[in-house]
């Protein structure tokens, strides 16, 4: 069974080709690019909203992209249980669209952060994290100005209770804290899923560390930690879509 995916391209997306490359060339997923003006999506297993600066981040990150024509189809796909994955600006768009709870605010340190971060896998019972084990540390780069996750206390409690916080930032000293050092995220949230566990959002960029060639020379073994997350999604699509 060939797994199929669509990468949505907004004006200002800049990680769309990277996502297509990883899906198509690294993981052999039949991948189509879909311009945001389309009113329908092709019948695919996985929809990816890539990183970038859709609509120049005007008003709020993701606020305008969320009303692009294609988003109606993305919402339908997600509500019907289809795998949906937002990375960085894609995560911001999913929260603005109400497909994931919370919001991404200005980084606490007021700086655009562009660096490798360590994220700790919290639960492996989701498509995204199924190729990892709870407690695994993954090294994945971030590049964002608005990545400080916030959600009200009641909803955070629900997220924690239902195991929807999938990835948390590990501070440079190896600890996970209530407020992540990298951007100030509440409960150190780096990635979450919805309650149905088919919609995923994360600020770090797994598509930038999915091949040994470009995984970053900082590591003795070439870093392909991001690939494990994509492989989890692809495996779920292959298993669930048949």
């Amino acid at each position: 069974m060939t797994v199929t995916a669509a990468v949505v391209v907004f004006p200002g997306s800049n990680c769309d080709e990277d996502c297509r490359h990883v899906l198509s060339d690294v993981l052999d997923v039949s991948t189509q690019m879909v311009w945001h003006k389309e009113s329908a999506l092709p019948d695919v297993d996985l929809v990816v909203l890539p990183g970038g600066f859709s609509y120049g981040d005007y008003l709020r990150s993701g606020a305008i992209a969320r009303f692009s024509p294609v988003m109606k189809a993305v919402v339908e796909h997600a509500r019907a249980g289809g795998l949906t994955f937002g990375i960085c600006n894609g995560f911001q768009i999913l929260t603005e669209a109400g497909l994931l709870p919370g919001a991404l605010r200005h980084n606490r340190g007021l700086k655009f952060v562009c660096q490798d971060v360590t994220v700790r896998v919290q639960h492996s019972d989701s498509a995204l994290t199924s190729r990892a084990v709870a407690g695994d540390d993954l090294i994945i780069p971030v590049a964002h100005n608005e990545g400080c996750y916030y959600v009200g206390p009641e909803i955070l409690e629900r997220l924690e209770g239902e195991g929807q916080v999938l990835l948390r930032y590990v501070d440079p000293d190896g600890e996970v804290r209530g407020q992540a050092a990298v951007n100030g995220s509440l409960a150190a949230v780096a990635g979450i899923c919805n309650s149905a566990r088919n919609v995923f959002g994360m600020m770090p960029h797994p598509e930038r560390c999915s091949e040994a060639l470009v995984g970053g020379p900082a590591y003795g073994s070439k870093n392909t930690d991001g690939r494990r997350l994509f492989e989890g999604l692809v495996a779920a699509a292959a298993g669930g879509g048949a």
Partner: peptide, 8 residues
């Protein structure tokens, strides 16, 4: 609907 995000 657009100008403010009621979450924050």
């Amino acid at each position: 609907q657009l100008l403010a995000n009621p979450v924050v």
